Every structure is written in structure tokens, then in C-alpha cells.
Amino acid sequence: MELFIAYKNYSSWSLRPWLAMKVTGLAFEETIFPFYHDTSLTDFAKQEAIPASVPILKIDNQIVWDSMAIMEVLADTYPEANLWPEAKAWRALARSASAEMHSGFMGLRSQFPMNCRRQTKVNANTESLKDISRLAALWKKFYQADEVLSASRSEGPFLCGAFSIVDAMYAPVMWRIRNYGLFVSDEFDAWSEAMFALPAMQEWLRAAQAEEWDIAAYDSVE
């Protein structure tokens, strides 16, 4: 398998499947398309007749694009990786939250681009505050789900206990909250610390810090 991604310092969508694959031990090669600095992504997209966006997965000579599509294909192809929770009720909750991340939280994503290298304090605007409030409610829902679902939460510090796709989907939010000095909730902080401590996340951070590319618009948020 080969995963095509963009800048590790800035690309939130690239982080999602990369992290899921690393944490679950799926072997793959990676190729970086620094699309602000060259035409490699647009050239590849034109060749494959797909949107010029990352991430992209090549698996068994098939091209798969979009983070959620990639992770669903991986879950189908490698069921032993347990990319979704085993219990049906938890899978439903994880899928709902993942879909909400995929299409929502635009205020937070617009005001606070992912930037692993930069730590600063920025006050959230009205739209971002709404998204932060929603995150707090969502985390409370996960942490209280044992009370209403037919299956117990598995052991572990992540949203469903064990790491799954929903954690990968919200991984960039960890960077946004952490590096811009924001606060969601105590439950979110506990999850964030577990995510930050993952060896795979630390590997991503080291690579992000070593990158030589800069994007001024992302580095000047204040």
C-alpha cells in the first residue's frame, strides 16, 4: 500500500488515515505532495482523474481518495485491525461522530488551521466557541455512553476505549485545541493526552518539526 499525503505540519486530512494505519500496525509506504510548493498533487490527480486533494491511498492497484473512504476501505480489507469498535452500538456512535467531523466544525477548522510546530494563545471567535461547546457535549456523550448503550465501553483512554477511526478523525482537533491554548473539557483533556502520547503521534510530530516547508498563512494566525 502507498499513502499519498501532504505536509505533516499542516495537513489535518493527511494525519487521519496515516495515524489510523500506524496505530493499528498496517504496513504502507508514504509519498508527500507539497502542493503549495510544486505541482506534484495536481499532476497525480490529473493522471488518475480524481480531485486534487489529499490523502490518497493506492491499494491493490486501486486508487481511493478522501479520508473517510480510505479508512472504510481499510476496515473492510483488514478486519483484524479493529478500526471500528466491535460492539454494534459503539460502531454506530463512532460512525456518527466521524461523519459529523467530516462535514462539520467549520468554524474551528477555519479559524485554527493545524500547525504542529507552533504554540500560541488565540481567542476563539463566535463560530469556534460553538464548535468547542459541541466538542464538549460530544465527549460527554462518549464518556457516558455506557449508561445508555447495550454494550460496555472497551478498556482504554480513547473515545470508544480502544483506539478506532473516530479517534483518527478527531486527531487534528487535538492539535488545534492544544496548540492554540483552547479548553474543551476535562474529558477532552484526558483523551488529548492519550492521543499526544501515542508513539505514532510523536513520530508524526518529529517529522512535522523536521519539514522545511513553510506556509505563511498558517504560521501567522493570531
Rank of each mutant, 00 (worst) to 15 (best):
E2N: 14
E2F: 02
L3W: 01
L3G: 06
S11I: 04
S14Y: 01
S14E: 02
L15T: 01
W18I: 00
W18H: 08
M21N: 02
G25Y: 05
L26Y: 05
F28P: 00
T31Q: 13
T31G: 08
P34I: 09
D38W: 06
T42D: 14
T42Q: 15
D43S: 14
D43M: 13
A45D: 07
K46F: 06
Q47G: 04
E48D: 05
P51N: 05
I59W: 07
I59T: 02
D60Q: 05
N61L: 01
Q62L: 06
Q62A: 11
I63S: 04
V64S: 03
D66C: 01
S67Q: 00
S67W: 02
S67D: 00
M68F: 14
M68D: 11
E72Q: 14
V73H: 10
A75E: 06
D76C: 13
T77I: 05
Y78L: 11
P79H: 07
K88H: 12
A89K: 04
W90R: 15
R91A: 08
L93G: 05
L93N: 02
L93R: 12
H102P: 08
G104H: 09
F105N: 07
N115R: 03
R118L: 13
K121M: 12
V122K: 10
N123F: 12
A124S: 14
E127H: 11
D131E: 02
K141L: 14
A151Q: 14
S152N: 10
R153G: 03
G156L: 07
P157N: 04
L159S: 00
A162F: 04
A162R: 09
F163H: 02
A171R: 02
I177C: 07
F183N: 12
D186G: 12
D189I: 05
E193R: 13
L198P: 06
W204Q: 08
D214Y: 00
A217N: 05
Y218W: 10
